[in-house]
């Protein structure tokens, strides 16, 4: 499958600790091995402390693009958390953008200490739908809890991305990268998570 735009600009966002950088690597490696130039931008260092984290992927057949996506130029946003998905739409959204988003919120420290309000879930969802051409949602955290491991939310979301069929990303290629990344003892759980993501995505 060819990419729909060149460069294809993908944003993967979430909260520090959700494993956002890990899945950027899985997706990036899978695409690089299919022959694309891939650049991934990310900032980390202080990111595991619950802050907003996002990676930008630039996928191209032409050349190596820089890691930064210009304002308003994302084609696809993979959101591991709904507030972060909307934050990215604010910066990179446009009438053609497609979102694949986890519906489960992670409260901010300001909301937990009741210094401010975390936005209402249905309002968040409405805003994401309004600012996207297409928006898929999946309760990745709920599925992960059923699997007994909230840590696999990120893998479920990669599954959801594959399930959305919006990117030249093959399940087998991602699985290969997962074999290269995870201890083999953890693979059964992660393969199950990927499958659940593919099957549970809803428009």
């Amino acid at each position: 499958m060819a990419i729909s735009c060149d460069p294809l600009n993908v944003v993967i966002c979430g909260v520090g600790g959700q494993g956002n950088i890990l899945i950027s690597g899985l997706i990036g490696n899978a695409l690089m091995k299919t022959g694309y130039h891939v650049t991934i931008g990310e900032t980390f260092g202080a990111s595991q402390r619950g802050g907003a984290v996002f990676s930008t992927l630039r996928i191209s057949t032409k050349r190596r693009y820089g890691p930064l996506i210009p304002q308003g130029k994302a084609h696809l946003i993979l959101g591991l958390e709904p507030l972060e998905t909307l934050r990215m739409l604010q910066q990179y959204g446009n009438p053609g953008v497609v979102c694949v988003a986890n519906t489960h919120p992670i409260l901010t420290i300001g909301a937990l200490s009741e210094k401010e309000e975390y936005p209402d879930s249905s309002e968040l969802k409405k805003a994401i739908v309004k600012l996207s051409r297409l928006a898929w949602f999946v309760d990745a955290t709920g599925i992960a809890s059923k699997l007994g491991a909230t840590i696999v939310v990120n893998i479920i979301m990669v599954g959801a991305l594959i399930g959305s069929d919006q990117i030249a990303l093959k399940k087998e290629d991602v699985e290969n990268e997962m074999w290269n990344t995870f201890p083999h003892g953890k693979m059964k759980l992660n393969l199950r998570a990927l499958e659940m993501g593919i099957n549970n995505i809803k428009l």
Partner: peptide, 27 residues
């Protein structure tokens, strides 16, 4: 212009009132 005025307006109306900062603190 990085994106259409109408989209920019939609961002202002829909996203801006909802998006709060995600402060960082100790684990």
């Amino acid at each position: 212009q990085s994106r259409e005025t109408s989209y920019e307006q939609a961002v202002q109306d829909t996203a801006k009132p909802l998006v709060i900062n995600r402060g960082m603190l100790w684990c």
